[in-house]
Design a protein around this nucleic acid. Sequence first.
DNA 1: AACCTGACTTCGG
DNA 2: TCCGAAGCCAGGT
Length: 113
Amino acid sequence: MSSPFTERIRNIVAAIPRSRVATYGQVAVLAGNPRAARQVSWVLHSSSKRYGLPWHRVIGGRGSISLEPGRGYEEQKSLLLSEGVVFGDRDRIDLERFGWKPGGSDIENALTP
DNA sequence: AACCTGACTTCGG
DNA sequence: TCCGAAGCCAGGT
């Protein structure tokens, strides 16, 4: 079993809509602990496969992929690209456009891309 | 129970 | 804008 934190984190990540992204910090905040960003990464790392979580929709705070090449970077990028997420120069994603607005209407989530 | 780990974040230079 | 150092959290060992 997992602590409520971990479970919330899983639920939140699972709720990220297709072609949208959230930052680790954001997920941590939504989970109720603004400083547990690292924990978020840990949860994904340990149980994303098992729970079928859209782990690739979670990125670093600057809109860039935190994984290193050869360690999941390519895979994550390709998954995001396949969902229509656009990478700007320096490999960064515009969070204004693709950032997930939790609780936001589907409409809002639907347009930006 | 103490120590280690990690896909983070923030701050200063 | 980029890099290094420090801070923080909870699950694993």
